[in-house]
């Protein structure tokens, strides 16, 4: 039995405003070390809210969320959140943006770390470029590099491939797979079943608002995965059925 890295117990989130919105209801979930968990669900169901709770940016109304046995009550670089939009500071270069996440350390060490991360994320040529000079895909890579600069134990990804063209999606997908293969436990929020099936070792499907877990499916397809492979297609159909509320949850 692997150690649960992140544990959510009976998480409920209600937004009180002009209208009361119940986003999440009774979510119980454990994410183990070494897993790649994809959270699927209809648009606006509360996937991002759940990810924000994991990150410590949003507090659950009821329930408890722990990371390495400690209750999550504020953000921490060990749980690196990559937002849907890259959110790079426009006044800093790529280098400066990545540097933001580096803990206080000697200049030479920090410099080495930034160079290494830029190399890893294929950003070496753009180290001194400003965000407005980057393409959408490059900006996402910088956001990912910034998240990695804090040496996280858990990577939280909010629709990392949204609004990118196919080629860039594919290259970023490989990057995300490589990071997981190198030992980084990851949680991916997406509405794209293909994306989830290409990366995840487990898929969690949420219902429409208020979101509840309606399926928790282990994915044992071997890597590298081929979207045209028969087993992949079968699994995709099954998940799509559940996702659209037709299939039987497991």
């Amino acid at each position: 039995m692997r150690e649960a890295l992140l544990q959510a117990v009976n998480i409920t989130k209600i937004f009180e405003g002009k209208t009361r919105v119940e986003a999440l209801r009774s979510i119980d979930l454990a994410i183990n070390q070494g897993e790649y968990v994809a959270i699927l669900g209809p648009s606006g169901c509360g996937k991002t809210t759940l990810l924000r709770i994991f990150a410590g940016l949003t507090k659950p109304t009821t329930g408890k969320c722990t990371f390495l046995g400690e209750e999550i009550n504020k953000p921490n670089r060990q749980r690196a959140l990559v937002f849907q939009d890259p959110r790079l500071f426009p006044w800093l270069t790529v280098r400066g943006n990545i540097e933001l996440a580096i803990k206080k350390q000697a200049f030479i060490e920090a410099n080495e770390r930034i160079v290494e991360l830029c190399k890893k994320m294929q950003l070496s040529e753009f180290m001194y470029s400003y965000p407005h000079e980057l393409s959408g895909g490059m900006a996402k890579r910088v956001a990912l590099a910034r998240a990695l600069a804090g040496d996280p134990k858990l990577l939280l990804l909010d629709e990392p491939l949204a609004h990118l063209d196919k080629n860039i999606q594919l290259s970023l997908l490989n990057e995300l797979h490589r990071l997981w293969k190198d030992g980084l436990t990851s949680v991916l929020v997406t509405h794209d079943v293909d994306e989830a099936l290409m990366l995840a070792t487990r898929i969690i499907i949420l219902s429409a608002r208020p979101a509840q877990i309606i399926a928790n499916q282990q994915i044992s397809l071997p890597f590298p995965r081929d979207p045209l492979d028969g087993e992949f297609v079968q699994l995709k159909e099954k998940i799509m059925k559940i996702n659209s509320g037709v299939g039987e949850p497991e």
Binding site: L57, P75, A80, F83, L100, G150
Partner: peptide
């Protein structure tokens, strides 16, 4: 939020 997540 970026600042919070990166523990500024």
């Amino acid at each position: 939020e970026v600042g919070k997540v990166l523990e500024f």
